[in-house]
Simulated assay, not measured.
Amino acid sequence: MKKVTLLLFAILTISCAEKVIEPPQDLIPKEKMVEILHDLAILNATRTSFGSVLEDNDIEIMDFLFLKYEIDSLQFSNSDRYYASIPLEYQSIYEEVESKIQKQRTSLEEAKKSRNDSIRKVQEAEKDTVNVKKEDPTPSSN
């Protein structure tokens, strides 16, 4: 039984590491693919909240990305299919995308907190100024 389990494990390991699809001639490099998929995720989230703005300005997300990254739909599709044929590589790409999104989220939350702290400090300073004026009226010269 141990030999059968070991054999199945070896076959599974080899099949996961084997390239099922040959890399296309115009394969998008992994780093660029991460950038494209990151932007795609952000733009798709934007479409959920601000879809009418995109429509009003005739912005097609995929056309925008193809233009920005100087690629075409066939190159993107072939590259995506190639990376998907290597599950560990594909997972690594999406983990990098997720990491970039998380870093942006953290940065935005910190900026928002900093902005709120600044507003609070200004409001407290204004209150202090008002309180000082109420407590310490300027003496009149009579």
Rank of each mutant, 00 (worst) to 15 (best):
I21C: 13
V130P: 03
V20N: 03
I119D: 09
L65H: 06
Q104N: 14
M62D: 10
L67E: 09
A125C: 04
S73R: 07
E124W: 06
E22P: 00
D56A: 09
K103Y: 12
F64H: 03
D128R: 12
D80Q: 13
T46H: 11
K100G: 03
L54K: 00
L27F: 08
S92A: 11
S85P: 01
N78L: 15
E70N: 15
S52R: 04
K19P: 00
E55C: 04
Y90M: 09
D26H: 05
E31R: 04
S114N: 14
L8R: 08
R105V: 12
E70Y: 10
T46Y: 15
P24A: 08
D63M: 00
I86Q: 14
S107V: 08
S141Y: 14
E55L: 07
Q123P: 00
F76H: 04
L88K: 08
N131K: 12
S140A: 12
K68I: 10
D58Y: 09
I42T: 08
E98N: 12
I14M: 13
Q104G: 14
Q91F: 15
K133G: 05
E109G: 02
K133V: 11
C16T: 02
T106P: 02
I42Y: 11
I119S: 09
K2G: 15
Y69P: 10
F76G: 05
T46I: 12
V122A: 09
L8P: 01
A45H: 07
E110N: 15
T13H: 02
Q102E: 15
A111N: 13
T46L: 09
E18Y: 13
D26S: 09
E110D: 13
M62F: 10
L67N: 08
E89W: 01
Q104D: 15
E31M: 05
S79Y: 02
Y94C: 06
E96P: 07
L8W: 09
I11Y: 04
R47Q: 13
L54V: 05
S99K: 11
I28C: 01
N57K: 12
P23T: 02
A125P: 00
S52Q: 13
Y69R: 06
D136H: 09
I14N: 06
E35Q: 13
I14S: 14
T13S: 12
Q91W: 11
P24M: 06
Y69T: 05
L40N: 06
L37V: 13
N116H: 06
L67Y: 09
F66V: 04
Y69G: 06
R47T: 01
K133C: 07
Q91N: 11
D39M: 07
V20E: 03
S92E: 05
V53N: 02
T48W: 02
I11P: 06
T13P: 00
S49V: 07
I14E: 11
